[in-house]
Computed example of a mutant assay.
Amino acid sequence: MLLDPDSSALAQRASEIGESADSLANGVRLTEARLRELSGTCDIQVYRYGMLPTWRVIRTDSIMFVGAFDAGWEGHESATYKVMETPHGPLYRGFRRMTEAIISSAERTV
Rank of each mutant, 00 (worst) to 15 (best):
R93H: 08
L35T: 11
S7Q: 00
Y81K: 07
R108K: 14
I63G: 04
P87G: 07
S62G: 07
E19V: 03
R36H: 09
A11K: 13
R108Q: 15
D6W: 07
D22H: 10
Y47F: 00
L52R: 08
G27R: 01
Y47L: 13
W73T: 09
A25Q: 06
G50A: 15
A33D: 08
Y49V: 05
R97C: 01
E37P: 02
L3K: 00
L91I: 03
A68L: 14
Y81D: 06
T80R: 13
L91N: 11
F95D: 06
A71G: 07
D6N: 11
E37V: 09
M64W: 01
R97W: 05
E77Y: 04
T99G: 03
A11Y: 01
W73Y: 12
L3G: 03
T41P: 03
A25F: 01
M84D: 11
T109G: 05
E107D: 07
G50D: 14
H88L: 05
E74P: 03
A71K: 02
G75N: 00
T109M: 03
W55K: 03
R96H: 09
S62R: 14
W73A: 11
K82D: 02
I103F: 04
A33Q: 10
I102T: 06
A71V: 13
L35F: 13
T86P: 06
D43C: 07
E85Y: 05
V28W: 05
I58A: 14
Y92T: 05
G89L: 00
L30M: 12
A71S: 12
L52A: 11
A14V: 02
I44N: 08
V83L: 07
Q45K: 12
R56A: 13
W55F: 15
L35P: 07
R48A: 13
C42Y: 07
S39T: 14
D70A: 13
A14W: 06
G40P: 06
